[in-house]
Write a protein that binds this DNA or RNA. Structure first.
Length: 709
DNA sequence: TTGCTGACTTAGGACCCGAGGC
DNA sequence: GCCTCGGGTCCTAAGTCAGCAA
């Protein structure tokens, strides 16, 4: 562990040096192509004109496969039709957008009234698309590739769509009572439960193998909620959980899942087809004339709440969601989804200021759950792009911001010093912001602003380093963050001061919260919030590590190993951990055995080659020459296989406790990876699987090998 | 300023299924 | 053809952050 964290620290220190270098490099290249590109691609385009390249085709045929929905400037793009909007796009100010919009409302009244017209006149709108489509096809046919822009399609009023149509959610199947032969025992005696009580009992029975059922809070919460579902008779009889025997139920479900596995190919195929049918019917929606994949179109089935860490509500009953709990969001002029027969929706809403299609309130925390679009959708992709553009803007001002917070360490105001030290942690250690949480309602986890005295230890000297801060706290999902980091003297002195006269449970930064911090960050840079630092530091680390680790002479597997190592450096930075796979030791052992065997094979093959060479030297005939060639090839093949296995082993070992997926999916600007792949001729499929390629279609589409984050 | 809520992103674990080895 | 393993996908919890009301 300590080794890991030392490395982690090293990585961080390194990347900071690299930041400077990057900055210098960037300065020296002032005005280069990248910058132009950056401007052109800046997310102002996102809500503006430039991405409106002709998705109106797909809008007509509704074929997302042919048009990924990203309206990216392409190389052969001709000058924009609406030059006057170009200027607007040079400065990206997402957060001011709303304010700006308000100010611009009057100015744009004329344009807005156009919108309104269009809104009420969808058919005209489609007609126009049709016309554009037609024109475009004509041009294409004539070999003229010109960008046709869908000028109308820009949402500067904060709306997210004009048209939204979907089929509503898919509900889980109703509860199927257990067959009579499957019995529940209380205090050793068989007892038939009412359907409601039985259903809840099955939730518990299904989890009998899980560690959850050994936890007191889980058992207590479950039992309390279960009793609420019981009939008065059941309630009076069943008073102690430990007298409940669910084993028959448990065995029944195990047998069922076993039976599912044993199904014939045909049966499995049938289920697959049915799932596909449901996906086609409910898994897509039409948003602004694109057919888009929906992320989660199934309503969460009832069950027992599985909170993470020491969650005070674990084991509580997550109740079944009924149509009457559901709010449907779609456009007025769409075919509204129908509630299941005999039921009705809670509400039918037409709010185009939000992106969700369906929502309901869950009963554990009382929070709202949503059905939204898949990451491959235009709306999510553009947001993602915008996120990375904000992080790239931070790259430009980060040195200034760092200088500022270093200055603030000396402020005479405590709140400023706290803010500055917290920001230093967020920047240097990629900590999360750390919002306040409801005590007793959620697991006790913290982030930067909510760190407490008990989470930090100061060591003026440790392991040969000065001013070491030891951080140890439960972070998001109760994942432990443990790190020892040497900080600057002034930070250290400040921390000593913050700790003075405080108890273990007191806040380290008692004059700070995320709201204060983010307000400050907003003043430093438009759109800047605490989490942008995580995105920025993750992406810049990837870029820098790739530069450092990639050797031009490496073959593809070695390059991929380098990529994974760079990815890993980021995962370590962001503390993305995973439980080591249960079969890790075993599979590692198996792999080692394979490697040993391969080595034996190799030496055998080499011997054979040697012998064949000797033969060839003696016999000097075609046959033995051929034999040498064959043996040579065999040696080559086997050593390649061996190398591959060894790389695999290294990769797997290094990956034992680290999850690469999270950073890849959420923190690393995909354009860095795409550019790297292009530069080193690594097929993008080796880095991104199909889903990831769909999510990052925008980046794959727009990125050249010389892209710089 | 504070508390609360809604919308959206980020997160790890469970589960499924197919590739590849035997 | 069977089995194992791991990647891919699904699931949904747990964060962040802005906006609003008191």
């Amino acid at each position: 562990d300590s080794h890991k964290h030392k490395d982690k620290h090293k990585d961080r220190e390194h990347s900071h040096k690299e930041h400077k270098r990057d900055k210098e490099r960037e300065n020296s290249k002032n005005g280069n192509r990248q910058q132009d590109k950056h401007f052109r691609f800046s997310p102002c385009n996102l809500s503006g004109l430039s991405y409106t390249r002709m998705c109106c085709f797909s809008s007509l045929s509704i074929k997302v496969e042919e048009d990924n929905g990203y309206h990216l400037p392409i190389k052969h793009e001709k000058p924009l039709k609406r030059e006057r909007d170009e200027d607007d796009r040079y400065e990206h100010k997402p957060k001011k957008l709303k304010v700006d919009n308000e100010k611009k409302v009057k100015k744009r009244k004329q344009e807005d009234s156009d919108y309104e017209e269009r809104e009420v006149c969808i058919s005209l709108f489609l007609l126009k698309c049709l016309l554009l489509h037609f024109k475009e096809s004509q041009k294409r046919a004539a070999g003229e590739v010109e960008m046709v822009r869908w000028e109308e399609e820009k949402y500067t009023d904060g709306s997210k769509w004009r048209f939204l149509e979907h089929k509503g959610p898919v509900f889980p199947p109703p509860y199927e009572p257990l067959p009579d032969r499957i019995r529940f025992y209380y205090d050793g005696k068989a007892m038939k439960l009412s359907p409601a009580a039985e259903e809840v009992a099955t939730f518990y029975a299904k989890m009998l193998d899980h560690e959850y059922t050994t936890k007191d809070i889980f058992r207590k919460n479950f039992f309390k909620d279960w009793r609420k579902e019981m009939t008065p008779e059941e309630k009076s009889k069943i008073t102690e959980l430990k007298k409940c025997d669910f084993t028959e139920m448990h065995e029944y479900f195990k047998a069922q899942s076993e039976a599912r596995k044993q199904m014939t190919k045909e049966e499995k195929q049938k289920i697959k087809e049915e799932n596909e049918r449901i996906l086609q019917e409910y898994g897509y929606c039409v948003m602004d004339n694109h057919r888009e994949r929906i992320g989660n179109f199934r309503i969460e089935p009832p069950g027992l709440f599985r909170g993470r860490g020491d969650h005070p509500k674990m084991g509580k009953l997550k109740r079944r969601i009924r149509p009457e709990d559901i709010i449907i969001n779609c456009s007025k002029d769409s075919a509204h989804p129908q509630a299941p027969p005999g039921s009705r929706w809670k509400e039918l809403r037409h709010d185009n200021k939000v992106t969700w299609l369906v929502s309901w309130t869950e009963n554990i925390q009382g929070s709202i759950k949503y059905i939204m679009l898949n990451p491959s959708s235009r709306i999510k992709g553009e947001k993602d792009w915008q996120k990375y553009e904000t992080a790239r803007r931070l790259k430009k001002s980060v040195e200034h911001i760092r200088a500022q917070y270093r200055e603030d360490w000396r402020s005479k105001e405590m709140r400023i010093r706290q803010r500055a030290v917290a920001l230093y942690f967020i920047d240097k250690l990629a900590l999360r912001a750390g919002n306040e949480k409801d005590e007793g309602e959620t697991a006790d986890t913290v982030g930067c602003c909510s760190l407490r005295v008990e989470h930090i230890r100061l060591h003026p000297q440790m392991d040969g380093q000065d001013y070491v801060v030891e951080l140890d706290f439960p972070g998001k999902d109760s994942i432990r963050y443990y790190n020892k980091v040497s900080v600057e003297k002034r930070v250290f002195k400040n921390l000593q001061l913050f700790l003075e006269n405080k108890q273990a449970k007191d806040d380290l930064f008692d004059r700070l919260n995320t709201s204060i911090l983010n307000k400050h960050l907003q003043e430093l840079m438009d759109g800047l919030t605490a989490k942008v630092f995580r995105t920025y530091n993750a992406s810049i680390t990837l870029q820098q590590q790739l530069k450092e680790l990639t050797s031009p002479d490496d073959n593809i597997p070695e390059k991929i190993l380098s990529y994974n190592r760079a990815n890993r450096a980021v995962a370590v930075l962001c503390n993305h951990q995973r439980a080591p796979p249960k079969t890790f030791e075993k599979s590692m052992h198996n792999l080692q055995t394979k490697i040993d065997e391969k080595k034996k094979q190799l030496s055998a093959a080499k011997k054979e080659l040697k012998a064949a060479k000797a033969d060839a030297k003696m016999l000097r005939d075609e046959k033995s020459k051929k034999a040498v060639e064959m043996k040579k090839k065999a040696v080559q093949r086997i050593s390649e296989q061996l190398m591959k296995l060894e790389v695999q082993a290294t990769d797997r070992e290094e990956n034992k406790q680290i999850a690469l997926g999270t950073s890849k999916l959420n923190y690393l600007d995909p354009r860095i990876s795409v550019a790297w792949c292009k530069k080193w001729a690594v097929p993008i499929e080796k880095i991104y699987n199909k889903t990831q390629r769909e999510k990052f279609a925008w980046a794959i589409d727009m990125t050249d090998e010389d892209f710089e984050f």
